[in-house]
């Protein structure tokens, strides 16, 4: 991680936000991207010597930009950085909220942030447990649940439901044969559930429609929940939503509220990321494009500090599930309808 982007050197050449972020993420497998981003930003403030609000915000903005540029899919991450930024702005504007005098407000807030760094992580994990504790009520005795991906919240929810001995339910788990990172998590959840005597069937993406007749409800995780109440999630979620809708099965999303992100995509191709899913080719340029793709992939995987990552390959790609397919979003603050998401976001932005 020695290569810096040109802009990174200006304020603090000794602090590398990207490597901090990556090490935080690697150090705790339970951590989600937005929380890791917040962690990294707190660390950045700790390493800096800023003393005014404006300086802090500028520093934050700079680091956020660097971080976003270095990650192929910064949507989930930006939920965390945005939330952090809004939090700072609102608390700095109202020092009384922390019971502080007008004089020491900035330092106190800084200290509050620095001393509670680990607390945010704990809080995020707590919220996952909280979701699991009342999300499990959605799973009824005798139900069959369809889920996909490697969402840790969904895993926590299913595990919690499995631990209650009064409930018998079955799980149909969509595991794609791709080599994406959440496959491992998915395998782990399947193994855990089976250890709890929950019958689990694993199916490929292509068998979703076939299996849906046996399924009572669909529960999926999300990388980000966007402003119109839709979700951004692993590729294949959108088709599950469409199929569930056409079969009249309830489609629930489980997501912590720190994944709410201020985006308003109208279609799949509105997402502010580049995905290598649709690649049209003719016979002639197959070779060139293929070699270029593998090269890009190598860079994305090996060299994260490269200023601009080229798109996501198909294994890590995401899609957008529009709100009309979603029956409810289970967050730690309650079960929301998709239209409630914009309200939550408006609360912190305006």
């Amino acid at each position: 991680m020695s290569v810096h982007t040109p802009t990174a050197e200006k304020p603090l050449p000794d602090f590398d936000i990207v490597s901090t972020y990556r090490s935080i993420l690697a150090g705790d497998t339970e951590l989600t991207m937005p929380v890791a981003a917040i962690e990294a930003l707190v660390e950045a403030i700790a390493h800096s010597s800023v003393s005014t609000v404006a300086e802090t915000l500028a520093l934050l903005e700079h680091h956020t930009a660097v971080l976003k540029a270095s990650i192929a899919n910064p949507i989930s991450l930006s939920a965390g950085t945005d939330l952090f930024q809004r939090y700072l702005i609102t608390t700095l504007n109202r020092p009384a909220a922390l019971n502080l005098g007008p004089g020491d407000d900035f330092r106190a807030i800084r200290n509050h942030l620095l001393s509670n760094g680990r607390l945010f992580v704990e809080r995020a994990k707590q919220s996952r447990e909280k979701i699991a504790s009342f999300g499990k009520h959605f799973i009824r005795d005798g139900a069959t649940v369809l889920t996909n991906g490697g969402s840790r919240v969904v895993g926590a929810l299913l595990r919690r439901a499995a631990e209650s001995s009064t409930m018998r339910f079955r799980v149909v788990y969509v595991l794609s044969d791709s080599k994406s990172s959440d496959l491992k998590e998915g395998d782990q959840i399947v193994a855990d559930l089976r250890a709890h005597n929950v019958p689990v069937a694993t199916i490929p993406d292509s068998a979703v429609a076939y299996s849906l007749g046996e399924v009572d409800m669909v529960i999926v995780g999300a990388e980000g929940v966007v402003e119109n109440g839709g979700i951004i999630s692993r590729l294949g979620t959108y088709q599950m939503g469409l199929l569930a809708k056409s079969k009249g099965k309830p489609f629930y999303v489980v997501a912590e509220s720190h994944k709410f992100v201020r985006l308003y995509p109208l279609s799949q191709f509105d997402l502010p990321i580049e995905q290598k899913v649709l690649e049209f080719r003719v016979a002639d340029d197959t070779k060139g494009a293929a070699s270029k793709a593998s090269e890009d992939e190598g860079i994305a995987d090996m060299n994260g500090t490269k200023a601009k990552c080229s798109g996501l390959n198909a294994d890590d790609a995401v899609d957008f599930t529009p709100p009309d397919l979603i029956s409810g979003i289970i967050t730690e603050s309650g079960v929301l309808t998709p239209s409630a998401v914009s309200e939550e976001l408006i609360k912190i932005w305006f």
Binding site: L83, A97, R123, S127, F134, K347
Partner: peptide
């Protein structure tokens, strides 16, 4: 001192201030 989206940053004592909707939480 914060609303639900800022829940992440609040003081630990407040963490159970908003009980989840619709269900008996532990």
């Amino acid at each position: 001192l914060v609303n639900s989206l800022f829940g992440l940053f609040s003081q630990p004592e407040d963490s159970n201030a908003s009980t989840p909707t619709g269900a008996t939480s532990p």
